[in-house]
Design a protein around this nucleic acid. Structure first.
Lengths: 153, 153
DNA sequence: CACAACTATATTGCGCACAACTTAATCGCG
DNA sequence: CGCGATTAAGTTGTGCGCAATATAGTTGTG
């Protein structure tokens, strides 16, 4: 990138990491739209389903939020859509009426098989090796950890 | 991650790269909100301003969209907000009335100085070296290129 | 020059993200 | 027990992203 003549060349550099990160996420999301077409799931909905399949037990909204780093303002309407689609149930925890337990319906559980080929298809689209993917994952995880620590200021 | 006992362990693996990517973008965006507080800019608005500062001449909506991989559905309202804020002007190109030329106002140009410290502050929050950042950038750029190629199917 | 094809931007509708706030339930301290 | 503090989820409002569509301007071809 030519930064000659810029009064603030560091601003041009800011496009170099932050923009690719931003663009990569949107490209991945777009790819998922294609791969998930037929299930009716969006990418964030798919991530919620992954967590529920993994847990294999009812989870509260807060627990889901911790795993996905999302708050109730995002999750509540998303979960209502999954409920409307018949994939999950939302029941107040009888032991603590503040909590809502999100559990899979039979239909929701059955969808796991339907999307089981998605990760491999996405991997193929990304064109990177398993090792590269794992390295990338570690770098991104470290990034998130640092940014979470650097909150204030 | 324990994937023992999973019928579809590859789905658990799908959280390993795609989720960190998704989370990293949101964490970076959040960090920018803090760093840009005082300018009134959002992160996407800041990216648009970066492109305009870099170009140093009026750009059409399409050109901006190509640089940022965004379409008019996203850019038009965003640019209207920047116009309302007094940072850019939007004028029909007299030579081709279909085009809208987006140019910086004096106020918009002046903002470059105001945010000149942002990249360094963000770099500090990310806690990675310049070399790591460049490697990460290259991997993400490659990822985007592959995903753009893999459109259909 | 007419007119169909194309191009550039704008509009609409939906689903996130998230800050700020509200409501309801539970906890804990005196 | 009583009541303020805390916790969990939901609500509201704003700003993206993007697909689908609409509208207006331009171009190329006969």
């Amino acid at each position: 990138m030519d930064v000659s003549g810029r009064t603030y060349p560091q601003l041009a550099l800011d496009l170099q990491l932050c923009f690719p990160l931003y663009a990569a996420t949107r490209a991945v999301t777009k790819r998922y739209v294609t791969l998930l077409k037929g299930t009716g799931l969006t990418y964030p909905q798919y991530l919620v389903m992954l967590v529920l399949w993994e847990a294999d037990e009812p989870l509260t909204v807060t627990t889901l939020g911790q795993r996905l780093r999302l708050d109730s303002g995002t999750l509540t309407p998303l979960l209502k859509r999954l409920e409307t689609a018949g994939l999950v149930r939302r029941d107040r925890d009888p032991g603590d009426e503040r909590r809502v337990l999100v559990s899979l319906t039979e239909e929701g559980r059955a969808m796991e098989e339907q999307v089981s080929g998605v990760p491999q298809q996405l991997g193929a689209s990304m064109g990177i090796t398993r090792d590269e993917a794992l390295t990338l994952r570690d770098q991104l995880t470290e990034l998130v950890d640092h940014l979470d620590t650097a909150e204030s200021s």
